[in-house]
Each structure stands twice: as structure tokens, then as C-alpha cells.
Design a protein around this nucleic acid. Structure first.
Length: 301
DNA sequence: AACCAGGTACCTA
DNA sequence: TAGGTACATGGT
């Protein structure tokens, strides 16, 4: 069994990340058992089951289902994990830049060391964004579970299956009716299949977007896809592309969290949220991610 | 039993 | 350009 160690950045709290990982028991794409993460990933067309734990100051990564791993695979796996935990962001700059912000300062205290948990797989991020549109999260998790169980590959290990998100190629060959049987709306089924086709045929790729210079261009390229509006575009920029200043204005989760933190009578308006953003503009993605956590914390009003 | 969910496209005026 | 509506289903 292979074991890899990945050095963690100075500001990093594995426990905080675990709390995020544990947010929904219907999650299908990884599991947390005894403070350790199990996840199946596809690296260079090889299905790998990894087991991630923390020993100061390293992520300890064990490969559970493969004996022979080439150096190239190891290298790619390490990049994947560093991206997954967003190791490249300088959190001390974020903390320093927003330390006087009334909303973020207490959250930084509570969540110190939490990094954005990214979705390196581009199609997975888009799928999750589209599924999440306009429905409650628990239903969204159920839809994702059905989709992944039906169309994703899986690795068996000790009596259970560990799933990998279906590829664009796989979903591009699915029919609208099949997805509707899983209780996707007709619209969402159309969006997913369309976008799967476009990624599959390289009309749009993650690499392409990362090569664009400014955020507006990326947003435009994303919202040009039917089914991706401003919210989903920003969601994907934040979760998959690693863009620091994405901001899903009007996100209901963000609105409700702000309402809670600021003890508002009503959900904050879009205008108000844009106003708030001025104070953390460079770091909107992290601000959003941290504010999303607020309802799960005890000490935030 | 309404009403709202980590929105979006599409229609009308 | 602005404003209203359908969408599928589940939660509170």
C-alpha cells in the first residue's frame, strides 16, 4: 500500500475542513469516518481510492486499492489534493485584509484555518451548481446521489462502494427522460446533457477558462452556456476554478446567513450585499465560504 | 397547508 | 429593460 505525505500550509486546520466535509450525510462523493476522509478519484484514467488523514503538519494519503502507482500518478494525485484543499491561497493575507470587517472578524476566529474545499473536477462543479439551483440542499444531495449511483464508476472496498462523479462523456449519452426519472426537472436534465456534450467535445474546458485573463471573460464564457446564470457561474469560479473574488450575489444561503449574523428582519437585498462586498472584494470567495458556515456555528449570533 | 429552497430561461409589454 | 412565471420535489 502506497502512502504519500503532503506538506500543509502554515495556516491550515484539518478539523475545520472535516466539519465542512461532514455537513450532509447524503454526500456520495466522499465519506468521513473517525476524522479521516475516504474518496475515490480518477487520475489519468486510473480509479484510485484514497484515505486522507492528518499528522502535523502533513496530509497523510494512503492509496487503498492499488499496489503499483507510477511517479506520474503520484505527482498528479498530489496536485489534485493540493487543489482540493486550496493549499495555494495565502490565508494570512485574507485574514489581514478583512480583520476589521464586522461580519468576517468573528468568523475568522471561529473558522481559523478553514480553506475553501474545492471541486477540482470541472463538470462535477457545474453539475452540482445546476442541481442546487432553486431547490433545498437536502433534495439537491439526493439528486446528486441518484445521478452518481446510476452513472458514476465505483471502487469496491471492504464491503462498500466508493463512487466517482460521472464523466461528461457518460452524461452526454444519457437521455432527458432518464434524468427525469431521477426527479430532475426537464430543464435541468437538458442543461446537464447539453453542457456534458460541450465539455466532452472540448467546446468549453476548465483549462480554457483558466487561460482567460479576467474574471468577466470567464463569467461570460460560463453564462453563455444554457443553464448557467450568474449564480452558477460564480459558484463554479469559486469552487472549481479557484478564483478569489467570485461572489454569488443573491444566493439564498448567503442571504440567510447574513440575516442571521446581522439579526435582520428580512433577507438582505442584492444591493445591500453588493455594498457589503466592497469591504472584502478581493476575497469574495473566501468571505462567501466563511459566511456560509455561520449557521453551523454556535457562537455566531 | 402554504411557502420557500445554495436560480434560470423564457415570455410578455 | 423590466417584470412575471414555470419548474419538480422536499422541508419546516
Amino acid at each position: 500500500m502506497e502512502e504519500i505525505r503532503i506538506e500543509c500550509p502554515e495556516i491550515f486546520d484539518f478539523e475545520q475542513c472535516l466539519e465542512y466535509f461532514k455537513r450532509n450525510e447524503n454526500e456520495i462523493l466522499f465519506s468521513v469516518v473517525d476524522e479521516e476522509i475516504y474518496k475515490a478519484v480518477k487520475i489519468n484514467n486510473l480509479n484510485i481510492l484514497i484515505h486522507v488523514s492528518y499528522v502535523p503538519h502533513y496530509l497523510k494519503v494512503e492509496i487503498l486499492n492499488q499496489d503499483l502507482i507510477t511517479p506520474l500518478i503520484v505527482e498528479k494525485l498530489i496536485s489534485y489534493i493540493e487543489e482540493w484543499f486550496d493549499f495555494s491561497t495565502d490565508l494570512s493575507s485574507f485574514y489581514n485584509d478583512v480583520k476589521d470587517n464586522k461580519i468576517l472578524a468573528p468568523l475568522i476566529e471561529e473558522l481559523y484555518g478553514l480553506r475553501i474545499i474545492r471541486i477540482p473536477e470541472f463538470f462535477e462543479a457545474i453539475t452540482w451548481g445546476i442541481i442546487g439551483q432553486q431547490i433545498n440542499l437536502s433534495f439537491a444531495y439526493k439528486l446528486k446521489r441518484r445521478l452518481v449511483e446510476k452513472y458514476g464508476e465505483s471502487i469496491p472496498y471492504k464491503g462498500r462502494q466508493y463512487y466517482i462523479h460521472p464523466s461528461p462523456e457518460k452524461i452526454s449519452n444519457v437521455t432527458i427522460e432518464e434524468l427525469m426519472e431521477l426527479k430532475f426537472s426537464r430543464r435541468k436534465a437538458e442543461y446537464l446533457i447539453d453542457i456534458a456534450n460541450k465539455i466532452q467535445s472540448q467546446i468549453i474546458t476548465k483549462k480554457m477558462l483558466l487561460n482567460l485573463t479576467d474574471k468577466e471573460e470567464i463569467e461570460k464564457a460560463l453564462t453563455d452556456l444554457r443553464g448557467i446564470g450568474p449564480w452558477t457561474a460564480h459558484y463554479v469560479m469559486m469552487r472549481s476554478l479557484g478564483i478569489k473574488n467570485a461572489y454569488p450575489v443573491g444566493d439564498v444561503g448567503l442571504q440567510n446567513a447574513l440575516k442571521l449574523i446581522l439579526e435582520l428582519e428580512q433577507k438582505p437585498s442584492k444591493e445591500f450585499m453588493i455594498e457589503l462586498n466592497k469591504d472584502w472584494k478581493k476575497w469574495s470567495s473566501y468571505a462567501t465560504f466563511y459566511i456560509w458556515r455561520a449557521p453551523y456555528l454556535r457562537n455566531i449570533k
